[in-house]
């Protein structure tokens, strides 16, 4: 589902170019889960952004759901994100002016594949049934992240990319949210790549890789 071949990324800086990623090779087939760990500044988030078609690599090739991102324009990248990729952020990134119910359906509607029954099922599985008429600001951090996961799964993406999805949650809530997420991923058959600092959480996923100074260890 996700393939990276010899991917590199460099950012300019006042002290000269910073090589964030160097020759990354990675395969993540459908239905598999992968934890990406590494120190701060090791390039984890950059790798995630490249895989999510949010940014373009300087070298190498990235293929998502059979489509190469090389030379892909903004509209095509947006379409790929809409239809194939689901993103879960550490900051939840819910739309503050939409109610939980609307946030859950948000991406699916944009993708044109809104399935009310599936959203209802997700709502129940995520324990959000009583919260659907609330606004994000009226929810706890764990509840907001459950909404964010529901929003991602609602459009049945082929690839889910999560950037420290439990970074703002306590340990107990983190475990509960991640377990729920992995259960649902298993049900949908999506590929799941999660960036995390926590070895404990990384251990809950099927595979684990470590990034150091822009290279896979």
């Amino acid at each position: 589902m996700l393939t990276l071949r010899n991917v590199s990324k460099t950012y300019p800086s006042a002290q000269g170019p910073v090589h964030v990623l160097r020759g990354i090779d990675l395969d993540l087939p459908a239905g598999q889960t992968l934890a990406l760990t590494g120190e701060s500044g090791s390039g984890k988030s950059t790798l995630l952004h490249l895989a999510a078609a949010l940014d373009a690599a300087d070298g190498g090739e990235i293929v998502v759901a059979g489509q190469s991102l090389v030379g892909m324009g903004d509209s095509a990248r947006a379409q790929l994100r809409r239809e194939r990729i689901g993103l879960v952020f550490q900051q939840f990134n819910l739309v503050p002016s939409l109610k939980v119910r609307e946030n859950l359906a948000f991406q699916a509607r944009i993708a044109g594949r809104h399935d009310p029954a599936w959203v209802e099922s997700l709502t129940q599985k995520l324990g959000l049934s009583k919260l659907v008429d609330r606004y994000p600001e009226q929810l706890s951090g764990g509840q907001q992240q459950r909404v964010a996961i529901g929003r991602t799964l609602a459009c049945r993406p082929n690839l889910i990319l999560a950037d420290e999805p439990t970074g703002n949650l306590d340990e107990e809530t983190s475990d509960a949210v991640l377990k729920l997420c992995l259960d649902l991923v298993e049900q949908t058959g999506s590929a799941f790549l999660m960036v995390t600092h926590s070895p404990r959480l990384a251990g809950l996923l099927g595979r684990r890789i470590h990034l150091s100074a822009g290279r896979l260890a």
Partner: peptide, 9 residues
Amino acid sequence: TMRACGVSA
């Protein structure tokens, strides 16, 4: 968020 979710610029 909308851009990340697939709405083009």
